[in-house]
Design a protein around this nucleic acid. Structure first.
Ligand SMILES: [Zn+2]
Ligand SMILES: [Zn+2]
Ligand SMILES: [Zn+2]
Ligand SMILES: [Zn+2]
Lengths: 136, 136
DNA sequence: ACGCTAATGACAATCATTTTCATTTTTGCT
DNA sequence: AGCAAAAATGAAAATGATTGTCATTAGCGT
């Protein structure tokens, strides 16, 4: 049926190719952040013959399409995560690596207020806490 | 309070070697963020025969001594800048690099509360806001 | 089956940062 | 000053993530 009813729904017609789909599902399995290299290793372990170049390319496309977010580890390595996941932060033990996911609406509000105060737009933020857990 | 007479003044005796001093003064001239490579180029242009390795080492020391701050550019390159004594955070324009120093007691309190809630000790934090300034 | 385009991956190239290691400079002491 | 130990230095090689190249392949409509 291709007729006059131009009911154009702005379906952000995003097509994902095979590699992109693989990465999305891998990221789902991860449930958080992962680097390109890590994602590549995971796929390989699962018997997938994907190439590293393709992983990088797919991640870049997913980024362009706003399907994933990117952050930087302390050493500068880029880490990606699915966008849909609830925004949260981390409290990490610097000795054993134990991690607690923090959901803090008060920081979010604070960040927003600061942004407005200084007339900044499209403001994102990085908030990470690191210390020693009760076992260490 | 252990012993009443032990009035130990914690003079943080920080000594800077020649290279570190050079970097500090170069960073002063810059007045903002600069990468290791950029600082190296600047020093070289000024006729200084400093080596790149030394630049990296000096920056690391300055970092350890909390004399400089480090952030990451979008491409992952580390950028450094002089940091005042007072603990603070940054609101950085991801386009032109304009920076506003943020002093936010509410985040500090939030971080502390979270730490106690999860029984973590010696908790430090990273809080950076990045967006587009009013000129960009 | 044919032709065209997007996708792929092996490999090389880049580039910031770190390591190595031999040499130079500074420091501390007599 | 003289001198040994420690700290600092820098050239060059190594590392490691990310990107570029390019020939081959998979998909898809005709
Ligand atoms: Zn721990
Ligand atoms: Zn947040
Ligand atoms: Zn700006
Ligand atoms: Zn703070």
């Amino acid at each position: 049926m291709s007729t006059a009813t131009t009911k154009r729904i702005t379906t952000t017609k995003i097509t994902m190719n095979k590699s992109q789909l693989k990465l999305v599902s891998t990221l789902e399995r991860v449930g958080g952040f992962a680097s390109a290299q890590e994602l590549y290793q995971m796929l390989r372990r699962d018997g997938d013959g994907i190439g590293l170049t393709t992983v990088y390319r797919a991640l870049q496309s997913l980024l362009d399409d706003k399907i994933v977010d990117v952050l930087r580890r302390a050493d500068g390595e880029a880490i990606y995560r699915l966008c849909g996941e609830a925004h949260h932060h981390h409290l990490v033990c610097r000795s054993c690596g134990a991690t607690v996911e923090i959901e803090g609406s008060s920081v979010e509000k604070w960040a927003e207020a600061i942004s407005e105060e200084h007339h900044f737009r499209e403001v994102g933020h990085t908030v990470e806490l690191f210390g020693l857990c009760s076992n260490c």
